[in-house]
Structure formats: structure tokens, C-alpha cells
Simulated assay, not measured.
Amino acid sequence: MKTFSFFLGFAAVVWVLVQFSKTYTQLIEVPLNYINAPLDKSISDEKPDHVDLQLQDNGFSIYYYKIFNPGLTVDLSKARETEDNLVYRLENHLSEIEEQLKIDFEKSRIIQEEILIPFQFKKEKMVKVLPNIEVNYAVGYSASEPVRLEPDSVKVSGPRKIIDSIITVPTRTIKLNRVNQDLNGTVEIDTSDLGMLSFYENTVNYYQEVSKFTEGSAEIPVDVINVPEGLNLAYFPKTVIVYYQVNLKEFDNVSAADFRVVCDYESVSEGDDYMMAQIVEKPGFINNLRLNERRIQFVIKR
């Protein structure tokens, strides 16, 4: 039984070697990969994804192509342009194709003579870049101005339909914690889901001045506006306290005269006995304002 099994296996191996040594003609699909697309053109999704290779070779080579399926890289910078297509003539690049596919064109040939790649001319425009940067400051630190980008807009090109729908593009998300010094760095533009577009710049710089901040307060009189003529209105409290954050360097430049707090009598709903106080004037360099009291009680004297 062992002898029989040995000769049976040996015969099978010999048969396989004989069969694979024979010459066959086989049609094989070679996948295409495109590189160096012109920046002013958008390649259509309907571009050919393969060419047909008629391969005449022994079974071992054909089996190799069937298993590993090597692809062909098409350099579009070497293609000829027509009205609607880029034309890549295969016969003009036979040596490159032979080197990539490891074939001999004396025994094989590509069925297609040329590859037609449809395209559309791209439209260009400047698109605003929005910072997607979350800044958490260390205790006692803050910033007077938001994060600034440089450049704040980038040139984008792509199919007209897509370009016309794009208004802004965000940066990738960055989260910065316990910040206590000026920000200065580089962030990538988030181009995910925008593969049809070409960005002339893929990164922008971000900046922000970070300073030591302190909290201040000021007692401000409440002004009531739009009170009907002849209406005797009494309200309480007459003053409120405004709390604010300010750059330590600007602390001495803030005074109570820089603020104005008002209540609009016209905004009072029927049956209410209070008005809402609002800050309508303040210095431009302070932030995080709040009032110790927003509800101002009132009565009408007869």
C-alpha cells in the first residue's frame, strides 16, 4: 500500500509538472492605478479600472498572474488631452508596461490600444478654514481673541458641483489642556470625505496670545428704558454688580463708567412684576461677564 501510494503521488506530481509546463493562451484582467492627474482636471469615477492582457505562456506564469494579479500604473502626465478625455496610448509605453508586468510582448499583447480616461475641468475658489481647536486654559489664564489661522483661507479645486457646495472647511480636531502660554503650531486641514477636491495647501498655522487674567467687579446703576410717559415706576435694586475677567495688564483701565446696564420695560410680559437686566455697554477687552442679579423687581405707584 505504501509503494502504491508513493507511485500514485509521484505520478500526480509529474502530471501536474507536465501540464503546467505546456503553453497556454489566457485572457487576464490587469487592474489599473492612475497617478499624476493634472491639478486642473477632475478624473471621472467612470474611468476604466482594468485592461485585458492576452497572455501566452506556460501554466506556471499564468497561475502566477491569476493569484497575484499585478497591476499597471498609468502616469496621466504622459497622456494626450482631447476635449473630454485623457488618452493614454499603450503602444507608446511598451517598455514601461513590460517592466511593470514582467511580460514579453513577443508572446503576449494587451487587447486595448489605448485607455480613455474621462475628465472634467476643475473649478477653483478660495475656501475659509475654520479652527477646530479646543483650548482649556490653566487657572488664571485666558485669551482676549479667538484662535487665529494663517492663512485663514486656502485654494481648492475640483468638480464644479462639489466646489459650489463648499463654503468652509474645518481643521482636524486638536484639544489643548492647561494652556498658560501663547499658542503657536501647525494643524492639518480635515479633507476627509473630500477626495474629489485638490487642496493647494494641506496645513495651516494657528496662533493665540495667552495672558494672565484676573477677575474684577464694578457696581453699576440700572437704567430703565421705554417707560410710558406718566407711569410712576419704582424698582429695586437700583444698582447691580458686574463681574468680569480682564487681562492683568488691562485691569487698571477698567472703570464703572465703561459699563451700562439697562432694563427694557417694553419687554415685560403681562402679569410679571420684574424686568431682566442686560449689559449693553462694556469694554471690548474684557470677557466672561455676569451679573449678581438679573431680575429687577418693580411696582407701579398710583
Rank of each mutant, 00 (worst) to 15 (best):
Y63H: 11
D40H: 15
P38R: 04
K66W: 15
L55G: 09
L39D: 10
F60H: 04
D52T: 10
Y34K: 00
K66F: 15
L27Q: 10
S42I: 13
L39M: 15
G59W: 03
E29D: 09
N58P: 13
G59E: 13
D52W: 13
I35T: 09
P31I: 05
Y64D: 12
F60M: 06
L55P: 13
E46G: 06
N36M: 05
Y63T: 14
E46A: 06
K41M: 12
K66S: 11
G59C: 09
L32H: 00
D57I: 03
P38S: 01
E46H: 06
Q56T: 11
S42P: 07
L32D: 01
H50Q: 10
I35C: 07
I43G: 00
N58W: 01
L53K: 01
K41C: 10
D49K: 06
P38T: 03
Q56H: 14
P48T: 04
I28A: 11
E46V: 05
D52L: 15
Y64W: 12
D49P: 06
V51G: 02
L55D: 02
P48K: 00
Y65W: 12
L39V: 15
K66M: 15
Y65Q: 05
G59H: 03
N58G: 10
Q56C: 15
S61H: 04
Y65I: 03
Q54I: 14
K66N: 14
A37H: 12
A37S: 12
E29Y: 10
Y34T: 01
P31T: 07
S42Y: 15
P31Y: 05
Q56D: 10
E29K: 12
I35N: 08
Q56A: 10
Y65T: 03
I43E: 05
S61T: 07
L55H: 03
I43W: 06
Y65P: 05
Y65S: 06
D45F: 11
H50V: 15
P48Y: 01
K47M: 01
L39H: 09
H50T: 11
P48M: 00
N36C: 02
E29G: 03
D49C: 02
K41L: 11
P31L: 05
P48F: 00
S61A: 13
L53T: 00
I28T: 02
H50L: 12
L32N: 00
A37Q: 14
I28D: 09
K47S: 06
K47H: 04
H50I: 11
S61C: 11
Y65E: 06
E29N: 08
I62R: 04
L27W: 06
A37W: 14
L39N: 09
D40F: 14
I62S: 01
I35P: 02
Q56L: 15
L27S: 12
G59V: 06
F60K: 07
Y65L: 11
I43N: 03
L53M: 04
N36W: 12
I43S: 01
L39Q: 09
